[in-house]
Nucleic acid binder design. Sequence first.
DNA 1: GTGAAAGCGCTAACAT
DNA 2: ATGTTAGCGCTTTCAC
Lengths: 352, 352
Amino acid sequence: MRSEDIAKLAGVSRSTVSRVINQYPNVPEETRRKVMKVIEEHHYEPNTNARVLAGKGTDTIGLFVISTAEQTRSNRIYQNSYFAPFVDALVDTANALGYYVLIHTVYSEEDFQKIRQAFSQKRIDGGVIVGTQKNLEEIRSIAQLGEPLVLIDYDPAELALHHMDSNTVSVINSKDYAGSCEAVRHLIGLGHRDIAFISGRLNTHSGRERFRAYENTLKEHGIPYREELVIDGDFRRKPSYEAISAFLASGARPSAFFAANDEMALGALDAFREFGLRVPEDVSLIGFDDSQIASRLTPALTSVRVPIADMSRTAAETIVTMCRKPNSAFSAVSFPTELVVRESCSDAPNGR
Amino acid sequence: MRSEDIAKLAGVSRSTVSRVINQYPNVPEETRRKVMKVIEEHHYEPNTNARVLAGKGTDTIGLFVISTAEQTRSNRIYQNSYFAPFVDALVDTANALGYYVLIHTVYSEEDFQKIRQAFSQKRIDGGVIVGTQKNLEEIRSIAQLGEPLVLIDYDPAELALHHMDSNTVSVINSKDYAGSCEAVRHLIGLGHRDIAFISGRLNTHSGRERFRAYENTLKEHGIPYREELVIDGDFRRKPSYEAISAFLASGARPSAFFAANDEMALGALDAFREFGLRVPEDVSLIGFDDSQIASRLTPALTSVRVPIADMSRTAAETIVTMCRKPNSAFSAVSFPTELVVRESCSDAPNGR
DNA sequence: GTGAAAGCGCTAACAT
DNA sequence: ATGTTAGCGCTTTCAC
């Protein structure tokens, strides 16, 4: 069933059918109804490809989840406590705004090509990219297409430095620095001075910010920053577990750990158990992201809440707005974080 | 940049460019290379819409997550322990097979329209539907489009009954009945006879199967089925928590609970805590799905594992196969489940 | 207010 | 082996 069939049945021309579909003002109510009737009776749906070819939008946004750090297609991306709720809210919001979401995961440098293709092949009107920013050059080449783009967890300053602060791109972040400060201050307030840091990937904006805040907050409180207390957990549970096991095996016994995300805190918990360390009696622990599981743990995990759903919703709204009127300006918004105190921290033991 | 531009630059006609792109055999290697060179130099990507219009596929599959049971757009669908890993593996697999995934959530009867539209508007080559089967009529109207369709968690028998076992649809299930039997038998083996069932939605295949198995297994072991021991938890944590609280408040004290999914088991745990019931000392509990959180709980939750990732991967492979050669037959595969025994069950107390 | 006709970028049957 | 041409289904000037 094509628009021409509808036209014939309604006794009008294809142009008029098109006018009705696209809600042109200069169609008399009667003609409109006549055409609509035929359209509905036959469940006619205009071919999107033809519409796009004739100059319309796709009403589709791309969602690209970058995860080049995982060596393999580990099938865990969307179960990740950060990505899952992100995808969730983004799809919902975009759907509610009348947009489909085209999703693609990026595991390798090569996969970045898929993002560019989605644009070049005219599959999407705009895109949202969430993940590591290791590949700034790739991102730049995408931004250069001049299509609407929303970047999650990218450093605005760095983007500006690379001349990517064009009016077709927007950035959405969380206040990771402030959140980390709060967490570390909380630990210091409890009397801890030997505070280890379980670091995430430093090629992400949030990973770097959380690290910077840890280092600076210690110094601000007169506690020397000690490199040997920094453990790389790659934002993932298993590497965190392994690194911390090794760390503990070496005899180190800081009184508190601050993990740059909950996944790694979970890994820490596994390691603690193995070494007979009780939380919070023997060691205090703070996570980041406040994922669903944090509150269900025993003891419940103190963590820094990141308003992922809000960020995601905003990302969807922003990209849709940009798609609809492409003459907006470069924008960067940052969402507040908040320390959620639960049961995984206690006063530092004497003498520590 | 259009194929004509490439043609000019390469000194050939558009047809030849098209032949190169579509890997026609009758293009001499030299011509092919000449054209490819120009294509690559200019990062040319054929316009997908034009290709589709001319008869090619979209290389896109639709993924529709149905959740009409949730009254509101609760933004939790993809964090759901069942859907999240499902989306995960499906996107990955489809991507690896060269397909984009167009995702849309269905919250209302009205949203079903979106599925039909995705097909009618020629946005996708095939679709995967996962969720409740309340709306069999809606599904039927989609199946009637004659496009490749994979249904997750639908009853093959019922589909046949409604003449939806066409050769364009395939079904993928898990062996929920067998899994539930195993769980209930485990409880019975521990000496439990007062076993309550926390039921999921009965308009899903799995919800019904898990229920049926509970009922039948009791009977098979000479334990009468008692309606008052069945609690409706709607597959969700909160309703489960509320229903069980009410149930316990009424004075009922079965020695064991079998929940039709882990979400509801979590709700049960909340209720137990409130009533001062310890797991497994005072009450035994088994969940279903073996979601990520099950093993992290204290005590770790015994649960029936469902190979969601395998099912999802198979769904992706099946739909892609169907899209590529649409002359397959109706198929239905069922994946095995397995009881994972952890720490949430103990022997039934004497006299119970 | 409505229709005719050109054009969007591609593929494929046909012709050579 | 390659070019010519006729669509694919729609939107949109441009006439009337």
